[in-house]
Amino acid sequence: MQYLAPQTLDDAVKALASQPDAKVLAGGTDLLVRMRSDMIHPDVVLDIKRIDETRRITQEDGGWRIGASVSAAEMGENAALVADWPGVVEAANLIGSTQIQGRCTIVGNLCNASPAADSVPAMVAANATVRVVGPEGTRDVPVQEIPVSPGKTSLKPGEFVASVFLPPRPERSGDAYLRFIPRTEMDIAVVSAGVALQLDEGGTCTAARVSLGAVAPTVLLVPEAADTLIGTKVDEPALEALAKAASAAAKPIADKRGTVEYRVHVAGVLARRAAVIARNRAGGAS
């Protein structure tokens, strides 16, 4: 097995172009586990942690650019980032355990393409984009377009994700992410929901994005659920409608972690609870 650790994005792109089957390594909390458990045997591992751009959290156009090697714990240490996007940072810091959070990255979480990934519904609700680099240049892509099915992404051969961009946080806005797990930590979401919303001065919701995890082959962006909030004060009737819409949008499977009925029901419960947190963070009625 060959291990490559380029120092620049350009070198990484070149290396990956010549070794399209190479596996990209950042935190390694998914990749190394898959290798150790005999699921994959890559000939080349390309470590991107030595590339400066992937290690940084920077403010950009009022928003935030988070490099692909930035760990969840590092995000949690950045007070300004936490103030702007608490839902995204909290979601990233639900992954695994404290030890895992010191290594794992939200880009890795995205590119692992699990429908149950914790940070992904939060990023989708936040309307985040990712910067994809590859032999044909650089492109910015909405987060929800990266996973296409469990374990599969839309990245082309030789491409990888270099960073995530979280847009500027609007006035009177808030985000939140909740997941259900049977224990209190070190688990994988049975169902999850992300909500980001914006209020006007009177507390009426003017924009909203609602996402659901672990209820379909990929994380879902659910506009019809968001529509139940827009134009309301995110009050009881709106929340009731949101829960119904979220449950209606959930199309889960039954597996060892939960039944179809369970996931459908709890998708609505979590969307509703996340919306209340997002509303309160936006300064709305509590």
């Binding site: 049977p182 224990r183 209190t184 930590e185 070190m186 688990d187 994988i188 060892k256 972690r257």
Partner: peptide, 11 residues
Amino acid sequence: FLDYRVPVASD
């Protein structure tokens, strides 16, 4: 131990 869930300390 991911899906065979013994209680963890925080439980």
